[in-house]
Amino acid sequence: MVNPGKDQHMSPTSPPGTAQDTAGIHLAVGDRAPEQPRSAGAAMATENLHVYYGDFLAVRDVDLQFDDRRITALIGPSGCGKSTVLRCLNRMNDLVPGARVEGRVTYHGTDIYGPGVDEIEVRRRIGMVFQKPNPFPKSIYDNVAYGPRVTGAKDHLDDTVEQALRGAALWDEVKDKLKQNAYGLSGGQQQRLCIARAIATRPDVLLMDEPCSALDPIATSKIEDLMGELVQDFTIVIVTHNMQQAARVSHSTAFFTAQPDEHGDRVGTLVEFDRTLKIFEDPADKRTEDYISGKFG
C-alpha cells in the first residue's frame, strides 16, 4: 500500500539550511523563520479532518500540512482540540472507545486511516512524547531498548540505545547508570528519556503533546534546545499552551479555538495556520490576534 504517486519528494537527504535553523533556535520570532528555504514538502497532512467521541463532534474540518523536518506548533486555549488532532496523527485515538475520525490524515501521501494500513506500523513511523514523562518502571536501558525490542530490531541494541540517548542529549548524564531504574531520574531527564525511547525506533515524525508542561524552566529550555537538534532528522509536531514556546521553536503555527456549533456544543476549530512569524506578528484572524495578545484564553 505504498503511495508514491502523490509524493513529490522522495529524497531521504536532509534539505539544505537545517543547520542554520537549529543555530537560531533561541532567537526571537522573525530572526530565523523568514530566511528559511522552502521545505522539501509535507511529511504529513490532514484533509477535512473531523473527530468524534461517540456522537460528540470534538474537532471539525481541520486542514493542516506538517512540513518535512520542520517544527509545527499547535496552540490554542484548553478544550480547543489541539491534543485531539495530535493524537489522530499516530492513531492513538483508536484506543479511546467511541473515537471516530472522518477525513484524511496522510503520511507521505498514504492515508493512515486507509484500508490495509496497520496502526502499529503507523506508530512505529510516527513517535510520540507525552505531557507527563511516562518512563516504564524498568531500567534506563530497558526503557530505550523497549521500542527496538518490540519491533524486532534487536541487532546492535547497545548501539541503538546509545545513539538514542545521545540524540536526546541524555547520554552523558546516564551512561554510567544505564541499569538503574528510570524512576530515579529527574522530571526533565525522564522526559528526555521518553524522547530517547521515542527516537530509538527511528521514526520519521515526532509528536509532542505539551512535553514541557510538567517541567521547570531549566528542563524546559533543555528540551527546547533538543528540539532544535532533533528537527534535523525528524518532522516535529508540538502541542503547547505556551505561546512563547511556540514562537521560539516552531516554523509554522496552527491556532485552534473552541467554537459553539448550532447546538451550542463547543467544537474544536482551526482558526489560522501559517508561518509562525506571520501568526505572531500579523495574524489574519481577529481571534488569533486576541489570543496572542492575551485578550482571550
Partner: peptide, 18 residues
C-alpha cells in the same frame, strides 16, 4: 496500572499483546 504506561508502550509501536 496507569494509562500512561499503555500509551507509552503503544506509541513506540508495541502491539496490544506486547
Amino acid at each position: 496500572v496507569p494509562r500512561e504506561i499503555r500509551d507509552g508502550s503503544l506509541a513506540v509501536g508495541a502491539t496490544r499483546w506486547q
